[in-house]
Amino acid sequence: MSDGPLLKNLSLNQITTEQWNLREAVEGCVRKEIPWISLWRHKIEEIGLAESKRIVTDAGLKVSSLCRGGMFPAATAKERQVKIDDNKRAIEEAAELGTDTLVLVCGPGPDRDIDAARSSVENGIEALVPFAESHGVKLAIEPLHPMYAADRSVIVTLDQANTIAEQYTPQQVGVVVDVFHVWWDPDLYNQITRASGRIHGFHVSDWIVPVPDMFKGRGMMGDGVIEIRRIRKAVEAAGYHGPIEVEIINQSLWDQPGDDVLKKIKESYLKHV
């Protein structure tokens, strides 16, 4: 294998071209010869599951994952059940779209009790495993950067994600390694090794200095400080050789023509991933 990544593994995570609807994103991938796409549920909802599947299938694209499930913690048992039911719909959507990976962004706490919120995450995953397994879908826990603990996920390290995932088989529950969220972790490479055999996704972008926006502040690969290639090689050494999703949430990219963004993605992917 060459030192750089293979284009056959390149996947467009749909949030990177948020300015496009699903059809436009699929057509863009075809024009730019990007073989994989990761779909977001809000984009699927715009046109419906059946039409989304038809568009992707007719284009010959492969779906690397569905974003997202999770968001488990809630203030009441009734609200928690609503979230479980929504996750079951997400599992059904993933299976219908032909991907075996549902990305879990696990959710923030409804109050100041972060330990209870983390217990809710574990309980939520436990409730979903049999349903996901029956549909051939793996649950992939994506730890987020600690700065997102208050509003997006109380699972903020790969160690936490591994600890939950290890309660199950790798075909039931695994992890997503997103460089934007884990690059800072002094135990990162030990945790990647620990996750061997249960890494179900790998996401790339970059950490810009200074971060221009807490949510929409990710950079194109090579524009920041992350050792992306080193992390990619560690993930491969841990047994992951699947699609590499470019997931960049950035308003400046959303303001550009999508084809220009895809051109830059391919260039940066080959140079920096």
Rank of each mutant, 00 (worst) to 15 (best):
D3R: 15
P5M: 05
P5K: 02
L6A: 14
L10R: 04
T16W: 07
Q19L: 04
Q19C: 07
Q19A: 11
L22F: 05
E24G: 06
V26N: 04
V26Q: 06
E27F: 05
G28D: 09
C29G: 08
R31H: 14
K32C: 09
E33D: 15
I34M: 12
R41M: 12
K43D: 07
E45D: 14
L49Q: 02
A50N: 13
I55K: 02
I55T: 14
T57M: 14
L61N: 03
L61K: 02
S65Q: 14
C67W: 10
M71S: 10
P73H: 06
A74F: 01
A75C: 08
A75H: 10
T76F: 00
T76S: 13
A77Y: 07
A77D: 15
R80L: 08
D85K: 11
R89K: 15
R89F: 09
I91T: 03
A94D: 02
A94M: 12
E96A: 14
L97H: 08
G98S: 11
L102S: 01
V103Y: 00
V103P: 04
L104S: 04
V105C: 13
P110T: 07
D111S: 12
I114D: 13
A116D: 14
S120H: 13
S120D: 15
V121N: 01
N123K: 14
I125M: 10
E126P: 06
E126T: 08
E126Y: 06
L128N: 06
P130Q: 11
F131W: 12
A132K: 05
A132R: 02
E133G: 00
H135K: 15
H135Q: 10
G136K: 04
G136V: 11
G136D: 03
K138F: 00
K138W: 05
K138Q: 10
K138G: 01
P143M: 00
H145V: 08
H145K: 13
P146N: 03
M147Y: 15
Y148K: 09
S153K: 09
I155W: 10
T157E: 09
T157G: 12
L158G: 01
L158C: 02
D159M: 06
Q160Y: 00
Q160N: 01
A161V: 14
A161S: 03
N162F: 08
A165H: 09
Y168S: 07
G174W: 01
G174V: 01
V175G: 04
V176D: 11
V179G: 03
V182W: 08
W183S: 12
N190T: 13
Q191L: 09
T193H: 13
A195F: 02
G201V: 03
H203S: 10
S205C: 13
P210Q: 05
P212V: 05
P212D: 04
P212F: 13
G219E: 02
G219S: 02
G219W: 01
M221E: 11
M221P: 08
V225F: 12
E227H: 11
E227W: 07
I228D: 01
R229N: 11
R229C: 12
I231P: 08
I231G: 07
V235D: 04
E236H: 07
A238G: 00
Y240W: 01
Y240Q: 03
I248W: 07
N250F: 12
N250A: 12
Q251K: 14
D259M: 07
D260I: 09
D260F: 04
Y269W: 11
Y269E: 06
K271I: 10
H272P: 02
V273L: 10
V273H: 03
